[in-house]
Simulated assay, not measured.
Amino acid sequence: MQRWDRIEAFVEVVRLGTFAAAARHLKVSNSHVSRLVSQLENQLGTTLLYRTTRQIRLTDTGALYYEHCHHLFDGFREAEAAINDLQAQPKGVLRLTSATTFGERFIAPLINDFLCQHPQLEIRLHFTNRQVDIIDEGYDIAIRMGTLRDSTLIARRICERHEYVVGSPEYFTRMPQPHTLSELSRHRCLVGSRDLWRFDVDGVRREVRVEGPWEGNSGPALLDAALKGLGLAQLPDYYVDPYLASGELVSVLDAYRHDDTAVWAVYPRHRHRSPKVHQFIGYLIEHIGELLPVRR
């Protein structure tokens, strides 16, 4: 059976360069460290270290063994540090940015609840539909929607997000429901923050450029226009689910719905051990389902 204390003694001798330094680090005697390394060599049936009065030197076998073993103890230290960080109380200032409507409806209440539990924390919120550069602009976390671009940021999925093309029953008394993407060109499309609607065609993402008599960068205003029969709109589920359930809106082109559009919390890699970042994101994931509309 492998003895971890023997392996640890060997790793520390190599890492620190002497038996004495390893003994001080492990808080044991020099002779104890030397005995552990000898026991390990006997166990493996090979010499790991050349010992002289002035220095120690790895054998070829010892170098190979060290290369495989020292990562284990690096991992142990990182695991202990991560546990300590998670148990630490979040403090300081948490700077967060999010898309406006989603942030106001779902993120802000959870931030406020989290702050009630951790009054030593300070919050700085910024809601915008612009995709900010969170590193250059000094944010700890950004809440982002949809398919993420390739990035050096770390991303954690907060919840699912599905987009629907919807119209009111009154609108469909004047216009037939579309069944193919090519039919969208014959419809009055209400344009939100983008004029490219995303779809899935046989597993391949496709974007269709749309146009119509209405354009604006407000989700609630776009929803209101669709409810009043002004045309078709593509909106996420948390806008339209209640109205689809009540029959005030009708979903079309469901066969082409592009569903890979989750909500993400993204943050810089240098923040990956921050208690305020980790604990708040964990709180979001645990509780956001309590606020979201019931999925159809």
Rank of each mutant, 00 (worst) to 15 (best):
D200G: 01
E170C: 00
R54F: 14
C69V: 10
L153D: 04
R149E: 12
E183A: 08
H32V: 13
Y139I: 10
L110S: 04
V33D: 04
M145F: 14
R273F: 12
E122P: 11
R57W: 10
R296E: 12
F73I: 02
K91S: 10
F127P: 00
S168Y: 12
L291Q: 03
I143M: 01
S31C: 07
Y243K: 05
V208Q: 03
N42P: 01
R24W: 13
G231V: 03
T100D: 08
I154P: 00
V37G: 08
H287W: 14
V252H: 06
L222P: 08
E215T: 15
L36H: 00
L96I: 15
N30A: 05
E163M: 12
R269H: 11
R209T: 12
F19I: 10
I56F: 07
L148E: 00
W197L: 01
V252G: 02
S185T: 15
A23H: 06
G103S: 09
S185E: 15
Y164H: 01
V33M: 05
R271G: 00
R257P: 08
S98L: 13
Q234E: 02
Q117N: 10
I56A: 01
G75N: 09
L235D: 03
Q43R: 12
R209Y: 13
Y66I: 04
L292G: 00
R54L: 15
F102Y: 08
A142E: 08
D200Q: 12
V201N: 04
I123T: 03
L121N: 02
R205Y: 07
I83L: 09
R188G: 04
E160Q: 14
E8F: 14
Y256C: 04
K276S: 02
P176V: 08
P109Y: 04
V201H: 05
V11K: 05
T180S: 06
Y239Q: 04
F19E: 05
R77Q: 03
G92A: 06
V93N: 10
L190Y: 01
R188Q: 13
P220L: 07
K27R: 13
V252E: 03
L72E: 07
L249R: 07
L40R: 06
D195W: 09
E290I: 10
K91G: 05
E122A: 14
A255S: 10
G103T: 09
E122S: 15
T128Y: 08
H179Q: 05
E286I: 14
T147P: 12
S193N: 13
S274N: 03
G138Q: 08
N217K: 15
E104R: 11
S193A: 10
T128D: 06
L110Y: 11
L148P: 05
Q55G: 13
V191C: 05
Q279N: 07
W197V: 00
D85N: 12
T128V: 12
G45D: 04
E104M: 11
D200A: 09
D5N: 11
V266Y: 00
A20D: 14
R3G: 03
